[in-house]
Structures are given as structure tokens and as C-alpha cells.
């Protein structure tokens, strides 16, 4: 491609000084703003450099590691499950079961919690504050840590994984649900109450129809993300394909690792596809019904 002609440039240059005099802001940001952005950039870079120094980062080591990764990539070809195909398939089924039951269970348990934490359903500041902090605490602990705790209770295996995902998502769903409920329109609730409905009626017929599509789409979204989390929960012994993945990496069986990675990739994309279709169908159908 040849350099395009730039006839407009000359025109602009001609009265540049005049424009600059009239609109100084357009040519240069205020001095304080420039110092601030410079300080942020320098400070951020300095912290990054300090970190690399603290972690003993050296280009030679880095290149060495990349070299090793390259060898691993070569050794991965062609992906091959060996004699483990059936084991991998059943572990993958376990992974999906963990994601499905974990998401479903936490969604069911979190709905009452979401009501409790929503200030337009339970208008009590102490309840509101306490339930919010409770949910925050649960979310502050990673799924893998919950898995370790549940292994103490029900032993190794996928059941611990289900309970771990249930617990950590209970925190997220509780927060998301309560926010969705708080954002709902007050008028249907008033309508139900003024027609003689009870508080429960007002929730069932005033709030639930508004928030259900939002909640369902959030639940589906979490199901997608939990499928990913459930692939790794086996690393600590809580069932699913993660155990095999960690073991085969530890034993440097790279062809098997590549096969497992491909299996995960295909499954995750399939789940994403199905759930995005479902989400669209659900939101489309609902909004079509209300319009």
C-alpha cells in the first residue's frame, strides 16, 4: 500500500499556533494531571521491577524455562490417552456432575439468602449488613480451600468437590441474587399488596417474575465457569479430571496430558455453546412475553 496523500495536514499546520493559543487544553493536559499519570506509570513499573528482583527473575532462567516448554510441546504430539481412555472419560463425567450439582445446589440454597440480604425484602439494617459480610467471608475463601475442608467431612472423591463448589458459589449467588432483587421494580409488589396479597405473595408474583430470567442467566453463566473450576478441583483430591491431569504432569506423560487438555477444551466449548444458546432462548422468550 502506498503512502496516502495527506492534503489536510498542511491546512492544520498553518494555523496550529493560533489553535494552540485558543484551546491549550486540547494540546496539553494540565500539569497536575500529567504529573499524576507519570507518577502512576513510574510507580507501577518500579513495583513490577522490584517484584521481579524479589522473585529472582533472570532472562537466562526464563529462556531456559521457555526452552523446556518447547520440548514439552513437541513431546505432546500426538495426543494419546494410552490405555486410560475409559478412566479419563469417567473422570470427565464426574467433572460435569460436580459442576452441575454444585451450581444447582448453591442456586437453590442461595435464593432465600439472596432475599435475606436484599434490603427491599428484609428491611432490617442489621440483617442486611450481617448477611452481606457473611457472604463476603464465604467468597473470600477459594473453592480449592473449601474442597480441602469438605474432604475432611465426606472423604476424598467427587462429593467433596460438589460440596466445595456449592459452598463457594453460595457466597457469589447470594450476593448476585440480592443485587438483582434490589434492582427490581417496586410497583408490581405494591400492586400485589394492595390487592390483598401477603408478603410471600408479593415476592412470588411481584418480584420473582422480574428477577427469574436474570437469575437463570447468572446460574447458567456460573455453570460454565464451574465446569472450568471442576476440572482442577481434583488436584486436591476432590474428584474429576484434575487428579489425572496433575498426576500425568507429575509423571511427565506429555501425550496423555495433551489428550486430557484436548478433552477439557472440547467439553468446555460444548458446555459454553449449549449454555449460551439456553441463555439467549431464556432471555428472548421472557422479554418477548412481557413486551
Amino acid at each position: 500500500m502506498s503512502e496516502p496523500a495527506r492534503p489536510m495536514r498542511g491546512l492544520g499546520e498553518a494555523d496550529r499556533s493560533e489553535l494552540k493559543r485558543r484551546y491549550p487544553q486540547a494540546f496539553q493536559a494540565p500539569i497536575a494531571e500529567r504529573w499524576l499519570s507519570l507518577a502512576i506509570v513510574v510507580g507501577g513499573a518500579a513495583l513490577a521491577i522490584y517484584t521481579l528482583w524479589r522473585f529472582g527473575f533472570s532472562p537466562a532462567k526464563f529462556i531456559d524455562g521457555l526452552d523446556k516448554l518447547g520440548i514439552v510441546a513437541v513431546l505432546m504430539m500426538p495426543p494419546d490417552p494410552g490405555s486410560q481412555l475409559w478412566n479419563y472419560a469417567s473422570a470427565l463425567a464426574e467433572t460435569l456432575a460436580i459442576a452441575f450439582l454444585g451450581t444447582l445446589g448453591s442456586a437453590i440454597l442461595a435464593l432465600p439468602m439472596g432475599m435475606l440480604a436484599a434490603n427491599n425484602v428484609v428491611a432490617n439494617r442489621i440483617v442486611h449488613f450481617a448477611s452481606r459480610r457473611f457472604l463476603d467471608t464465604i467468597r473470600g475463601v477459594d473453592t480449592l480451600i473449601w474442597a480441602l475442608i469438605w474432604i475432611n467431612v465426606v472423604g476424598l472423591g467427587p462429593f467433596a468437590g460438589i460440596l466445595a463448589i456449592m459452598t463457594s458459589d453460595f457466597g457469589s449467588f447470594g450476593k448476585l441474587f440480592s443485587e438483582a432483587i434490589e434492582a427490581s421494580d417496586r410497583k408490581p409488589v405494591d400492586g400485589v399488596l394492595s390487592a390483598g396479597g401477603s408478603r410471600l405473595h408479593s415476592f412470588r408474583f411481584g418480584i420473582l417474575p422480574q428477577v427469574l430470567p436474570v437469575l437463570m442467566s447468572q446460574v447458567l453463566y456460573y455453570f460454565e465457569s464451574n465446569t472450568r473450576s471442576a476440572t482442577i478441583i481434583g488436584i486436591v483430591g476432590a474428584g474429576g479430571i484434575g487428579l489425572y491431569l496433575a498426576n500425568e504432569i507429575a509423571q511427565a506423560e506429555w501425550q496423555r496430558v495433551a489428550f486430557i487438555i484436548l478433552m477439557i477444551l472440547v467439553t468446555v466449548s460444548a458446555i459454553d455453546w449449549v449454555s449460551s444458546k439456553l441463555r439467549l432462548a431464556m432471555i428472548g422468550r421472557r422479554s418477548g412475553a412481557t413486551a
Binding site: 469417567s90 463425567a93 464426574e94 460435569l96 456432575a97 460436580i98 452441575f100 450439582l101 467431612v153 465426606v154 472423604g155 472423591g157 467427587p158 462429593f159 468437590g161 460438589i162 460440596l163 474428584g239
Partner: peptide, 12 residues
Amino acid sequence: SAWAGQVDLVKF
């Protein structure tokens, strides 16, 4: 999923 995930309510 309960079958595949070895859900055991008694153990729970």
C-alpha cells in the same frame, strides 16, 4: 450427576 458424583447423603 448424583450417580456420577457419588453423592452419599448418609455420609454427608
